[in-house]
């Protein structure tokens, strides 16, 4: 369990992390979502005691990580996978980490097997691809069999097979009852992996919610209706109090009336329908909407009449 309370980090006069409070619970994959520069990595570094908070606290398992007696058994972290000494072999790199925490040599072999690097264990890290470096960093995180795992943008540089592997790994770790905290700026990635979301923008908390609930927020989506008589459909929808916007391919994107209402309306009026599809707002759209609203709020600018970037426009979604 990771608990942040009023966590704040200033670099000079600008806040990288601004009064952030959240709890990351065990047993589920918690996504840490935000655009680049939102403060995700800074937050993770503060969890590990690498960066000192300007204000607030963050604890792992109830304690300050800097005072943990067995660090690698407490938190396994994958930060910047490239940030390792390139001159060591994969085995020696992991061995030094293991030795520092009194973990046996056999465990080094086990984690190398687990991430599929056993064959290159005696090769120098400098020659590794980004994907191999990610796997090595993951091996290091698994060394101490920790109860809490943190991954900072873990899918970067991985091929599709590697991405599938790491998703399975993270879900498996959560299913074992561990706390899994994974950051990403890719919303689609989070939708695939995470159960719960902590969303930040410009260092501030935007949402702390389940993925399902988060997707349901924002504009909430619309219904796509297709009929051989589009003009009549539009007139009926408008008359019934809905709003319809024609799409380029001849359908109508309707808000204000749900699927049931539209189906009943069509049956009552004897209108033939060829399609009736509920379209939920994608995670991406909701996210863009929330973060752009946040930017507007923070800059204190007047509300613009034109829609902010990423807001769902009917007919285009």
């Amino acid at each position: 369990m990771i608990v942040a309370d009023g966590l704040t980090k200033y670099y000079g006069a600008s806040a990288a992390v601004d009064n952030l409070s959240f709890t990351v619970r065990p047993g589920v994959v918690t996504g840490f979502l935000g655009p680049n520069g939102a403060g995700k990595s800074t937050t993770m570094r503060m969890v590990l005691g690498l960066d000192r908070p300007t204000g607030g606290t963050v604890t792992v398992g109830g304690a300050d990580f800097r005072r943990t007696p067995a660090p690698l058994r407490t938190v396994g972290a994958v930060l910047d996978a490239r940030a390792v000494h390139p001159g060591r072999t994969a085995y020696k790199h992991l061995l030094a980490l293991a030795l520092s925490n009194g973990i046996g040599r056999r465990r080094v072999g086990e984690v190398l097997d687990a991430v599929g690097l056993a064959d290159v264990a005696r090769d120098r890290i400098g020659g590794f691809s980004l994907g191999m470096s990610q796997r090595l960093a993951i091996a290091g995180a698994l060394l101490g069999d920790p109860a809490v795992l943190m991954f900072d943008e873990p899918v970067n540089g991985l091929d599709p097979e590697g991405i599938r592997w790491i998703r399975g790994l993270m879900r498996g770790l959560a299913a074992e009852g561990r706390t899994v905290f994974v950051s990403s700026h890719l919303l689609t990635e989070m939708a695939e992996t995470a159960d719960h979301l902590i969303v930040i923008g410009q260092g501030r908390l935007i949402a702390d919610t389940s993925v399902a609930e988060f997707t349901g927020r924002g504009s909430g989506g619309h219904t796509l209706v297709r009929s051989p008589e589009p003009d009549r459909l539009l007139a009926l929808v408008t008359a019934a109090g809905g709003t319809g916007v024609p799409t380029p391919d001849g359908a109508l994107a309707v808000t204000g009336l749900d699927c049931a209402a539209l189906g009943d309306l069509a049956a009552d009026q004897g209108l033939r329908l060829h399609e009736l599809t509920p379209v939920r707002a994608s995670l991406e759209e909701t996210f863009m909407e929330l973060t752009s609203a946040d930017v507007q709020f923070r800059t204190g600018g007047p509300a613009r009449s034109d829609a902010p970037a990423g807001t769902i426009e009917l007919g285009r979604a």
Partner: peptide, 14 residues
Amino acid sequence: TTGQIRVTLAAVPD
């Protein structure tokens, strides 16, 4: 220079 320090101090925070 390599960034290794973060890996090291995450394992040895003292």
